[in-house]
Nucleic acid binder design. Structure first.
Lengths: 136, 136
DNA sequence: CCATAATATATCGGCTGCCGATATATATCG
DNA sequence: CGATATATATCGGCAGCCGATATATTATGG
C-alpha cells in the first residue's frame, strides 16, 4: 500500500494546491513565492504534471473562470491527493532527519572526512554493525 | 551559489556514505536497511550515480580491498559532498514543513475541499458535482 | 501608438536519469 | 549441483524535466 514516491515537480504542485485551489499560472507563482524564489517550477513541466496528477486522481479540475478575457483553470486536491502529499512530506522529513543524523555520526568518527589511515593497508576487518539510525 | 537540487538516488547514496565509507553493494544494503525496507536503490541506478557524484566531486574513491576473492571499491564523501548533503537535507525538511503547514491551512478553510461558487467576479463554465462546502 | 512585460494557456523535442535485464565471477549453504 | 548471496558493471527503454516556441489579452512605459 505504500505508494511509491512522487516526483519533485508533482510534490511542488500538490504543495501549492494544499491550502486552496489555484490555476496553472498561479501554481507557478506560488511555488516560487513559497520557496522565496529558490525553487521554481517551469512552465514546460507544469502541464504534464497536472495531467499526470489528474490521471492519478490526486487532483481534479475544480472550476474554470474567465477573468478579464483570460481563461483560468482551477485545480484542487482530492482526499487522495492530500493523503499522498502528507505521506510524501513524512518521507522527506524522515529522509532529511536521517541524513542530518548520519552527517553528525560521520563527524564524530573522524572529522577530516579521512577515516584515519591507521593499520596496515590491505585487508581490513569487516565493518561493525552500525546502530540503527532509522529513516522513520 | 544555490546549488540545484540533486536527484533522489544521489541523495540516498550520499546519506548511506555520510557516516562511513562503503562499497557499492554495501550502499545498496544500507539504503534499504536505513529506510526499513521501504526505500530501495536499484543496482542499475547505483553505478551511474556513483560516476556522476565522483565527477561532481561530492564523493571520491577511498580505497579498494579484496575480501574473500571479491573486489570491494569503497567510496567516501568529500567535504563538498557533506555540504551538499546537508544543504539538500535542509531543503527537504523545509519542503516537508511547508507542505504540512499548508495541508493544515487547507483543512482549516473548509474540510471538504470544496470552495463556494461566487457570483459576479467571473463567468463560470462547468461546475462538477460535489458536496457543498463553506469557503470564502 | 507601439513595444514590452505580465498573465495564461499549451505543445514538442532533446537530454538526463531511473530501472529491469543481463553478464561475469566467487563463496557458501543445503 | 543448483540456488543464494556477494560484488562488480553495462545497456536499452521509458518517464519526466526543461528550454523553446506558439497564441491571446491586458497593462505599462517611453
Amino acid at each position: 500500500m505504500t505508494a511509491k514516491s512522487m516526483t519533485r515537480a508533482a510534490f511542488l504542485v500538490l504543495t501549492a494546491l494544499a491550502d486552496q485551489p489555484r490555476h496553472g499560472y498561479g501554481i507557478l507563482r506560488e511555488v516560487e513565492e513559497l520557496s522565496d524564489g529558490e525553487v521554481q517550477l517551469r512552465v514546460g513541466t507544469l502541464y504534464g504534471v497536472l495531467d499526470r496528477l489528474t490521471a492519478d486522481g490526486l487532483i481534479v479540475l475544480d472550476r474554470e473562470e474567465v477573468q478579464q478575457g483570460r481563461l483560468r483553470r482551477y485545480y484542487r486536491l482530492t482526499d487522495e491527493g492530500v493523503a499522498a502529499l502528507d505521506a510524501e512530506a513524512e518521507r522527506m522529513a524522515a529522509g532529511a532527519g536521517a541524513a542530518k543524523r548520519r552527517i553528525a555520526e560521520g563527524r564524530r568518527a573522524g572529522t577530516p572526512a579521512r577515516p584515519a589511515a591507521d593499520g596496515p593497508a590491505g585487508l581490513e576487518l569487516p565493518t561493525p554493525p552500525g546502530l540503527a539510525g532509522g529513516y522513520a
